[in-house]
Structures are given as C-alpha cells and as structure tokens.
Amino acid sequence: MNAAGNTTLPTKPPRNWWLWAIVLGFLTAMTVWSGYGIGFSANELVCNIAGGSRLLEESWPPDFSFLPRLIDPFMETVYIAIVGTVVGGILSIPVAVLAARNLSPDKVTWFLDRNFMNILRTLPDLFWAMLFATAVGFGPVAGALALSVFTVAVISKLWSESLESIDMGLPEAVRSAGGSWLQMIQFSAIPQAMQHYVSYALYAFELNIRASLVLGLVGAGGIGMILETQRANFEYERVTLIILAVLVAVLIIEQISETIRRRLT
C-alpha cells in the first residue's frame, strides 16, 4: 500500500517483436474474456441504440421553466464543496507536513502518517459518504464530511511532495537561530510551499464540486439529489436542463479557479 506512491521509470524493453505479439495477444484475450464476463454483445448494443435515441427524443427540448428550482440545490452543492474544502484544507496541513520526509520529526511518525494518508486516498469518496451517512444521517452534512476526508487525501498527498522539494537551507537558518520544530515549519517550510498549497486547495475545490454532484446521487443533498429524483420520475426534459446547467456552472467555476491558479505559479 505504501509503495503506491513510488513511480520509477521502468527500464526500456528491448525491441522484441515476439514480446509485442504476446502482449497484444494477451490484451485481446483479456478484453474478449472480460466482455463475455459482463455479458457484452454487439447485437444487444445495436438494438439498444434505438432505445437510446428514443430517450434522447424525450429529453429534448430542455425544460427551462424548471431552472429557478435548481438554484437552491445548486447552492447547496457549492456549500458542501466549500465546507469540505476548507475543513479538509486545514486538516491536510499537519498531515502533509508529517508526511514530508525532510520535515517529519522522526521515521516512525513519518511512516504512520504516510500510511494514514495512503489509506485515506485508497478509499473512495463514496465510501466516506456512506460511513458518515450512517453516523450523522443522509444529507449535506454527511456529504461535507466525506469531502473533507477526500480533500485531506488530495491536498496532503500533492503538498507533501512540494514540501519535500523545498530549499532546506532556510529551515536550517531558523533552527540555528534557536527556533523550535514548529517555528521552523511555520517560518521556513510553509512560506516556501505556500503557492503550491493555494493551488492544490483550489484544485481540490474543483474536484469537490464534481464529487458533491455524485454524492448527491446517493442522497447527500444538493443538485445530484434533484437529478436523481427527476430521473426516477422520468422527467427527462428536466434531467437535460440539470445536466446543461451543471455543465455550464462547473465550467465557469473551474475557469475561475484555473485562472487564479495560473496567476499564482
């Protein structure tokens, strides 16, 4: 599990055509086998395309009269993402610092925190949503808590790597002036990696907007929940509108966030 973060460049394989043929054959066999496994058949696909086109017809034109009723749930989605990003963003600071090999006070702390971080990252956000839903009940609070954990996983992994690449001369200067470990972190390590932190936090916010849509589908509130109820009621024209609105809103939010991030670095 802890080896998941290590990516090393594999040695270049020799140009062996037999090897290529074997690999290609293996991949083809795997795909065909897996296709049988899930009962995939080209015949069925062609028949269902007709059903798909009927669905598309029913979904057009989008029901724009439904738009005003989207505002509240959409804002709820944004709120969930904001709470998740802020809470997770704050909690990720100690997690990232202790997971940076050059800053962690000792090997044991580093090892434990590193693995803790990897466990958070390995478990998907849906799992956390289910977990918190059983604890605090289905709804936006469970969604925000799940996204907090997800945010810690995202930011701490990326940022601990930024922290590992800082210039260690400055921390040494703070230590040699009689500064404590905490003061060294605050006055020399964090300022050097601050830009990266803000950039990763904004990136986590973008991910959280999208993730909170998905969490809504399983009942964590927000626009995903509206989408799910409309779909269950076969209101496909409203579904189309929701998808379009979400597409536009997410694109706008990502554009703003990306512009800020680009200015930073």
Binding site: A177, G178, F187, Q192
Partner: peptide, 14 residues
C-alpha cells in the same frame, strides 16, 4: 543557539 547567530552565503531569508 539563541546565543550563537549565523550569517550565510546565500542569505537564507524567507
């Protein structure tokens, strides 16, 4: 170290 200050070639400022 509180009583021994150090000055560096590369300044080492934040």
């Amino acid at each position: 170290r509180k009583r021994v200050a150090m000055i560096f070639q590369d300044f080492r400022l934040v």
